[in-house]
Design a protein around this nucleic acid. Structure first.
Lengths: 206, 206
DNA sequence: CCCCGTATCAAACGAACGTTTGAAGGATAG
DNA sequence: CTATCCTTCAAACGTTCGTTTGATACGGGG
């Protein structure tokens, strides 16, 4: 049979991620997911309990690592007295972009994340805020220190735009083919550099 | 009865817009829509033919006017030899923000638009591109002239970010309460000015 | 008056949904 | 070998979905 080397749980998570990215949480059915994962329909409820729990598990699988890497990168920025706004933005962007460009469904995950961001679903927002909000708040503190000339209201409003722009853009990156003749590493650095410059210009604008 | 002053068709369009914004196209059912609109379930298929046609009608009702206003504003920019990048961005942003801040469901429409943008649905993309893409291409030409120092690839990529950021942000504006003591007009101008400056800084960044 | 096109209605259609059930497999420990 | 636990399976549960149907009411033009 075509069952892959991965466990039932992992196959479900991978298929769900891809289908949620493509059709949304309401639009992708458990029958589509289990069929794509080559597992029985009942396996979802056996391993995850419910569709909602499956959705949370799909987030958790990637966000635990992403959040940890962002946190570590930000800690290095905070330890460096000469760190710039660009360094802080790099700490935010680089882990996400590396995830978006990996070969194991990371691109699908970023598209799913962008959809979730746009959905404004209250249950999902609370889940994300409760489990991963603290790192984002750490970033907000650092940005506040680096952009002290902006009022708190003005800063939050700009961070909102930047976060939205970055989420949108990185979600698209898995889809954009890179320029011919460039290595993946070069493509990643090129992209990060431009995203950082773009975001920094917007945040600093008088 | 509580039937409003509007026709059955208009009541369906209004209810669908609000519910699509909140729950998405797959997540909002025709039973929810017709119940909120106080019309019979069969009215949707009678007046619009299908759910997909209803979705297109909801877009058409707002986008015809929005696109026309953007086109007119851009024509003024093109007629003015001294026009700046900020003027062109204003022509793009102002009509959308006025729509987002109107009192007749415009905020819901912008949220719906942002969701559609994030969904990457092929059918919907083709519908939007076929019906409203020509004005966006006109904007691209103007931006290309005003940012001649950027390569074509670089320009498109930045426009992509800016369009995403603006879509996201304007979708949120209907939800953000304005600062106390400011008139709606002042709030709108304040917002437009900052969005324009933010976008211009990102587009021009070296 | 009757007719006819428009509009609304309750009711039902088959299909697809998330979830549950109970039996069958398959590995491991005693 | 038997007993036990974890996993998988086909089948069915009740609900909700988009859509269709046929009857009913309404409103001018012949």
């Amino acid at each position: 049979m075509s069952a892959s080397q991965f466990s039932t749980k992992q196959r479900i998570l991978g298929a769900a991620e891809a289908l949620f990215a493509q059709h949304g949480f309401a639009g992708a059915s458990l029958r589509q997911v289990t069929s794509a994962a080559n597992v029985n329909l009942a396996a979802v409820n056996y391993h995850f309990g419910s569709k909602d729990n499956l959705i949370e598990a799909v987030f958790r699988r990637r966000l635990d690592a992403l959040n940890a890497r962002r946190h570590a990168a930000l800690a290095k920025v905070e330890a460096n007295p000469a760190a710039t706004l660009e360094d802080a933005l790099d700490a935010f962007i680089r882990p996400a972009l590396e995830l978006a460009l990996d070969r194991q469904g990371g691109a699908a995950f970023m598209r799913m994340l962008a959809r979730a961001y746009a959905e404004h679903d209250e249950r999902l927002r609370r889940f994300l805020s409760d489990n991963y909000g603290h790192v984002l708040r750490e970033f907000a503190v650092v940005f506040h220190r680096m952009l002290a000339h902006l009022g708190k209201e003005e800063l939050y409003w700009r961070l909102d735009i930047v976060a939205g722009a970055l989420t949108y853009t990185m979600a698209d990156f898995g889809l954009i083919k890179r320029r011919a003749g460039t290595s993946e590493a070069a493509h990643r650095e090129y992209t990060i550099e431009h995203l950082v410059r773009f975001a920094a210009a917007g945040l600093r604008a008088a």
